[in-house]
């Protein structure tokens, strides 16, 4: 025999699933939302996204090569591209590009690589990056361009009211009539509202969700538990006092769907067992509504996810999957 036989323990076959396939799968699922944001916000959306992706990839590569001195750089696995996309989706489309780069450095450098790179980070890098930018540059991060001014133009920083700020104003004033300024559900579904780059079009995100579920990249547990919790909890609030927005408005506004579908489902920072994922999703939904209605910020999704990221190890420790034969007696 010419070749030496290879020996290893079983199994000898593999599903051919790879990290790359999963990461690029999520990236593909984000494309509809990117197209929508281009249509709504024009060239700015594309520029900001491109800068974010490029700087995330660059920082990942540079840190891997010069600081961590890894032989096997993880740049090609697509996780940095994904972080870049998600980070860009969480900022206004007219954000100054240097702020975008700072955000990317924080997301990749501080949140991801200091913990050891792919698979080791405690918090979702894109969300932590967004939270950092929101706290550091509150003015730029909350200056929304007016949507639908024709693409091709790079929209100037104009302050347009977002559904969330309208809701907040209604709660603060205690006046339910302010809520009438909310765009109708159809507009929110398509994305003809102000807001962050990637979050405005609920429809595009739902298309992405269906794609990821079909490709078995994620399971339904986290997104569905978040959405159901938000609907139920905000529905109860709305019934109790009409100052609080309707559940449909809560669901379609802000980053809720983007967070529920793409952020909370981040592999690294979400719990491992199905039971844990449900608890995680319910807690995120609950916290989001609480922060939106009672907190200082109009948007609560990112903070809710970050808080639950911190609880993930604890959930993993206490929520074990049901062992085979556990209830057999």
């Amino acid at each position: 025999m010419a070749n030496k036989l290879i020996v290893s323990l079983s199994p000898h076959v593999h599903s051919n699933d790879t990290v790359q396939k999963n990461m690029y799968g999520v990236c593909i699922a984000l494309l509809p939302a990117l197209v929508c944001s281009f249509v709504i916000f024009g060239v700015g959306a594309i520029t900001v996204t491109a800068v974010s992706v490029a700087s995330c990839v660059f920082f990942e590569w540079a840190i891997n090569k010069y600081l961590m001195k890894n032989d096997k750089p993880t740049v090609t696995d697509g996780s940095a591209i994904l972080t870049g996309l998600l980070l860009a989706f969480n900022v206004p489309s007219n954000l100054p590009l240097w702020i975008m780069i700072v955000g990317a450095l924080f997301a990749i450098g501080v949140v991801k690589m200091t913990f050891g790179g792919l698979g080791c980070n405690l918090f979702n890098p894109a969300l932590a990056g967004r939270a950092f930018l929101l706290i550091s540059f509150p003015v730029q991060m909350t200056t929304w361009p007016v949507p639908m001014q024709g693409f091709g133009t790079y929209l100037d920083a104009e302050t347009a009211a977002t559904p969330l700020s309208i809701m907040k104003a209604a709660v603060k004033a205690g006046d339910a009539s302010i809520l009438e300024q909310l765009p109708n559900a159809m507009d929110m579904l398509v994305g003809r509202t102000g807001g962050c780059l990637g979050e405005v079009s609920a429809l595009a995100i739902i298309v992405g969700l269906i794609f990821m579920l079909a490709k078995k990249i994620i399971t339904w547990h986290i997104p569905v538990s978040i959405i159901v919790t938000v609907l139920v909890f905000s529905g109860l609030m709305n019934l109790a006092n009409p100052v609080y927005a309707s559940p449909v408005a809560e669901l379609l506004s802000g980053g809720l769907l983007l967070g529920a579908v793409f952020m909370a489902t981040d592999y690294v920072t979400s719990p491992m067992s199905k039971k844990g994922q449900l608890i995680y999703g319910v807690a995120i939904g609950f916290l989001t509504v609480v922060i939106r209605t009672f907190g200082a910020y109009p948007e609560g999704m990112s903070f809710a996810i970050l808080i639950m990221n911190a609880f993930t190890p604890l959930i993993n420790n206490y929520c074990k999957p049901k062992r085979f034969g556990e209830v057999a007696k």
């Binding site: 036989l5 290879i6 020996v7 290893s8 323990l9």
Partner: peptide
């Protein structure tokens, strides 16, 4: 060497695979 070991680089694991390489 008569075979190529293609598993975890650990003697304890390799020892359970076969007689080694």
């Amino acid at each position: 060497r008569v075979a190529v070991y293609d598993g975890v680089k650990s003697c304890r694991v390799a020892n359970t695979t076969c007689s080694g390489e």
